[in-house]
Amino acid sequence: MCAGYGAADRATLTVRRDIAVEVKIGVQHAPREIVLESGQSAEEVERAVGDALAGKARLLSLADDKGRRVLIPADRIAYVEIGEPATRRVGFGAL
């Protein structure tokens, strides 16, 4: 499943499908922001952003809710907005 990743990386690849956190990332010299819904917790996203900005990682690496990876050079991050965790709604019903 996680070929090429170490044990520490496998722990960060854990994605919860029942809770989504919207993440908006502004990239320097890019006209549009990157928006993704992540199955990672808000704390995991914040930790990954903090590590990238502190120089512990050259890339900010996040997983979206479909398991895809988004990689952004840490020195190009302008801002990161982390939304509140929201449970996914299934089915049809009144809002």
Results as ranks from 00 to 15, higher is better:
62 L>H: 03
69 R>C: 05
64 D>T: 02
16 R>M: 08
91 G>W: 09
10 R>M: 14
27 V>N: 04
74 A>F: 09
17 R>C: 04
32 R>C: 01
66 K>G: 13
79 Y>M: 03
81 E>R: 12
34 I>M: 06
19 I>F: 07
35 V>A: 03
84 E>W: 04
91 G>H: 08
86 A>Q: 15
75 D>C: 07
23 V>E: 04
79 Y>Q: 05
23 V>K: 05
24 K>C: 08
45 V>M: 01
6 G>S: 15
39 G>S: 00
56 K>L: 15
7 A>K: 14
18 D>A: 13
55 G>S: 09
89 R>G: 11
60 L>R: 08
22 E>D: 08
60 L>F: 06
55 G>K: 11
19 I>V: 15
25 I>F: 09
86 A>K: 14
32 R>S: 05
2 C>M: 12
72 I>R: 04
1 M>W: 10
1 M>D: 15
74 A>C: 08
14 T>P: 04
11 A>D: 13
12 T>C: 07
20 A>C: 11
41 S>T: 15
10 R>V: 10
65 D>W: 09
95 L>E: 09
82 I>W: 00
64 D>I: 03
7 A>R: 13
4 G>Y: 12
78 A>P: 05
16 R>C: 08
25 I>L: 14
13 L>G: 14
70 V>P: 02
52 A>F: 02
92 F>T: 12
74 A>N: 07
91 G>K: 07
85 P>K: 12
53 L>Y: 02
85 P>E: 13
11 A>F: 09
65 D>C: 08
95 L>D: 09
61 S>M: 09
66 K>R: 14
42 A>Q: 09
85 P>I: 05
27 V>Y: 02
67 G>L: 14
73 P>W: 03
53 L>T: 04
24 K>H: 10
55 G>E: 11
44 E>C: 01
73 P>M: 02
90 V>M: 06
94 A>K: 09
11 A>R: 10
11 A>P: 03
84 E>I: 07
67 G>I: 13
70 V>S: 09
48 A>I: 02
93 G>Q: 04
61 S>N: 04
16 R>K: 10
3 A>P: 12
61 S>G: 03
95 L>S: 11
